[in-house]
């Protein structure tokens, strides 16, 4: 009998606590598979956010540090400056990265910090119960935009990948989605490329993963995947924005 499917080595056997249909667990798996394939489990250090993934250390079978809300890129910078030869990544939600932590991610990218960021854009604050995020779409109903996000008062959703791609220190910037099998495979390739960019010392790398939050979107898991495809992708186009970009500073 041969094993055709098993848990990646870099994941623990603890069942995910995420809501049914939430894509956080799926992205964890992709990251763990990449860590396994690159054979870097023993020298990878992860930084988890404040958000639904706050206990990612329960799942990733590696050394990890929990960062204050939004500060994961600063924490990862501290770790990377101590261990320049280890692989350091942050895993952050859109409230964490694009709202409270915007300064830290921009400056980590601008410095060409040799870290990798996995950015879960689910267009909402999941953990705190579905409030508006900087990435919530215009018209999107959330618990703090009960009549739909209104540009006149709440402004416009931020396209983080486009913004970071303008920075010289960002070497790899990609936006992917996990709404179907084909895109999940693409997402994994991008995550691998981002880690490889770090290992090859090319600069900062980030993969924005369009994700779902069925619970706070008030939809079934299947409807959520369709909503992502129909509403998020038109505003957040998929693709690699920067590959082997500039930003290689000899350090």
């Amino acid at each position: 009998m041969s094993i055709i499917f098993e848990r990646p080595r870099s994941l623990t056997d603890k069942p995910f606590h995420y809501c049914p249909g939430c894509t956080h667990g799926l992205v964890h798996r992709l990251v763990a598979e990449v860590i396994d394939e690159l054979d870097i489990q023993a020298n990878t250090i992860g930084v988890e956010p404040v958000g639904c993934a706050v206990s990612a250390h329960d799942y990733f079978d590696i050394d990890m540090q929990e960062a204050a809300h939004g500060r994961a890129p600063a924490v990862a910078t501290g770790i990377k400056r101590v261990w320049p030869d280890k692989v350091v990544f942050t895993y952050q939600g859109d409230g964490d990265l694009a709202s409270i932590g915007m300064a830290e991610i921009v400056h980590a990218a601008a410095r060409g910090e040799r870290i990798t960021t996995i950015f879960i854009n689910n267009a909402i604050f999941g953990m705190t119960g579905g409030q508006m995020a900087p990435t919530s779409l215009l018209g999107q109903v959330t618990t703090t935009s009960p009549h739909g996000r209104d540009a006149g008062s709440a402004g416009y959703p931020i396209r983080v990948s486009e913004l970071l791609a303008t920075l010289q220190g960002a070497a790899y910037v990609a936006r992917v989605s996990v709404h179907d099998v084909k895109n999940i495979a693409r997402a994994k390739r991008s995550i691998k490329k981002a880690f490889t960019t770090q290992i090859e010392d090319k600069g900062f790398s980030i993969v924005e993963v369009l994700s779902t939050c069925p619970i706070n979107w008030g939809m079934t898991p299947a409807d959520s995947l369709k909503w992502l495809q129909d509403n998020m992708i038109p505003y957040y186009p998929l693709g690699e924005l920067k590959v082997d970009g500039e930003g290689v500073i000899n350090r």
Partner: peptide, 16 residues
């Protein structure tokens, strides 16, 4: 980039 970042870099490096 700020004291906020500085102390969190300290946290990361101390943890490391």
């Amino acid at each position: 980039e700020s004291e906020l970042a500085a102390i969190n870099m300290v946290y990361g490096a101390a943890g490391a």
